[in-house]
Design a protein around this nucleic acid. Structure first.
Lengths: 368, 368
DNA sequence: TTGAAAGCGCTACCAG
DNA sequence: CTGGTAGCGCTTTCAA
């Protein structure tokens, strides 16, 4: 790189390579100013028709695209929204990523995704990176248990929306399902189908894990059933490697006396793991043990025993998060934090369909 | 914004808000030059220990992070890699995204993902965006059938790696499975378990779809079986809404006389759809019809009839793509395009386990 | 309708 | 070891 700059530029012009085109090059070619090019590219009205035509022609010819990093530097906007999730492979988050990306794209925003692997330190690193890149908004399904990081985000004036998980003591934009409702809905359903000894394989110490347990307990209490702590199995990393954890939890539950006859699992993969383990032990589902999960994943109805579940409406979570994010970005004034709580929906399949059923909502449609 | 700039900056200093910190601010506070700050932040050795300490202290105190957009503008590097896939929800691509992101992160690169929804025009738009952002590399599972777009990428001097799908007439970096091998492996397996009339629900007109058909035909021919065109069902968008398509294809196949007794499906969701439809019609699997898919998705062994499949090693695809991308980024000279062809692996489960089995490789491990 | 001047926040280069 | 000068590619403001 000891070649003087102007010489390099000279080469560009003749060899059509090495460095990429800039507005300056087009301006020189056409004998107009850089500003004019800039205006044309942003559809600014202050340009004569003929000039505009000529510019567009040359832009097309060179397949020119303005450098967005340079633009960002001036405008302070990156048109980039960051999404931080614990695990992209988890269909729940993949679906959110998908709907979010779709919704943002129509407004010209792009999504940059990162995975925290359910590790609070990694999450912090990722968020630091995203902050350094000056993203316009962050959308976060956080695995942190303290609010300090979020205060730091606020200090940088980067708007953010929490999804799926809230933090106590944090007044922020939030979109998620009513998790206590999830716990109640699932547990009440097990009670309705005649289960007497209902266990819960719970999730991690994030808000969904905590609230679903609360809902579970509340449903039991309301129906006059006792909460038995042995029936609550804790699986620390609820959204990672869940099938093995579900199986292990089921192993523990099967050793209890009396054995539970209904299990509400934190999520579907966990329920799948638990169910397979039980089936492998020769236990009949739902006759001996009824099982319900959460997430309503798309393969639930193709399982060896189709799995009852709670629909969390992940698609809507992404859409609502996008709506809030765009609202903030289009508003010149600071908006009050908004909370969108989505109501869960019970989906009944065979894994909870027992003889003594009463009060069961209409069946899920036959598969396909 | 009619407040004079210096006044605004003055406010910053006292109110700790409104605009974000810059190197200039820290330099002023400490009475050193901006350059010194920059050097400290990039671990440049040319800084005295005491100065370095003071800078780091202030940086920490202010929770300062350099503006990466500004840095990019100077260095010409964004430390951003773009991934373009047809569908993030598809576990195959989600897994690739995951492993890719993991591998890149350890070298300081970040991943920006976009979904093309299996739409060539959308894919082009997405790629244009990514090019405008001057990403350091692009990783693309393309749904395009012409190479013109890729020549344009090459003109911008943006290195790229194709994954999963190649294009005829394009000499580019590529990582993917040996798709003809996939077709042969699956079809041969069906032949080995005694199937005589083997159908194929094929994928789209991208290289995996095309090559798998070729492998299917070749396996038939090699075993002295005739290729019957009616037994090949075409499903245009193979990686989108696949279950419905699988079911529909199965409906067509069941109407044929004689009915096929073995089906190789382009991917697992399609196989799931096909299998469920057949089961709902009262057909016994694998006794009446054996089914094999491709992808070896994580729920395959929990299905009502556990699904035989071909493992495509998506994790490795991500890792290899990352390796190639990093190789390009760390090399000062232009490298020759590299091709990594991963060998597929047969996973046998119940959906192809028939009485007349011969020559069947060892069973998949019992679930969990 | 057009464009000159100024500057976004940072780093490369080279002189001291 | 330190820092001044110059400039990355673009937009903003305002004058012509």
């Amino acid at each position: 790189m000891s070649i003087p700059k102007f010489y390099v530029r000279g080469l560009v012009f003749y060899t059509d390579s090495f460095m990429s085109t800039r507005m300056k090059d087009i301006a020189r070619d056409l004998g107009v100013s850089v500003i004019t090019i800039s205006k044309v590219l942003r559809n600014h009205p202050d340009v004569g028709d003929e000039t505009r035509e000529r510019v567009l022609a040359r832009v097309k010819e060179l397949d020119y695209r303005p450098n967005l990093a340079a633009r960002s530097l001036v405008t302070g906007r990156t048109y980039l929204v960051g999404l931080v999730v614990p695990d992209l492979l988890h269909p729940f988050f993949a679906e959110i990523a998908r709907s979010l990306s779709e919704a943002l794209r129509t407004s010209g925003y792009y999504l940059i995704v990162s995975s925290s692997d359910e590790d609070p330190d990694l999450e912090e690193q990722e968020i630091n990176q995203l902050l350094a890149r000056r993203l316009d908004t962050l959308i976060i399904a956080s695995c942190r248990s303290t609010v300090e990081l979020f205060f730091r985000i606020e200090k940088q004036k980067t708007p953010y929306v929490l999804i799926d998980r809230t933090l106590p003591g944090l007044s922020a934009n939030f979109v998620g399902v009513d998790d206590e409702g999830v716990g109640m809905l699932a547990t009440k359903h097990l009670i309705d189908v005649g289960c007497k000894r209902i266990a819960h394989i719970r999730g991690p110490e994030t808000s969904p894990g905590i609230r679903r347990v609360e809902g579970y307990k509340r449903a039991l209490t309301q129906s006059g059933l006792k909460v038995i702590e042995d029936y609550i199995i804790t699986e620390p990393k609820g959204d990672v490697e869940t099938r093995q954890r579900g199986a292990e939890a089921m192993r523990q539950l099967l050793n209890l006396k009396p054995r539970p006859d209904g299990i509400f699992c934190f999520n579907d993969p966990m329920a799948m793991g638990a169910m397979n383990y039980a089936l492998d032990q020769g236990i009949r589902i739902p006759e001996e043990i009824a099982i319900i999960g959460c997430g309503n994943l798309h393969y639930d109805d193709a399982l060896s025993v189709p799995l009852s579940s709670i629909n969390q409406h992940s698609r809507r979570i992404g859409q609502e998060a996008a709506r809030i994010a765009l609202g903030i970005l289009n508003s010149k004034i600071a908006l009050k934090p908004e909370s969108v709580i989505i109501q869960p929906e019970l989906i009944v399949r065979r894994s909870t369909q027992r003889a003594r059923t009463k009060n069961v909502p209409s069946r899920a449609k036959p598969r396909l």
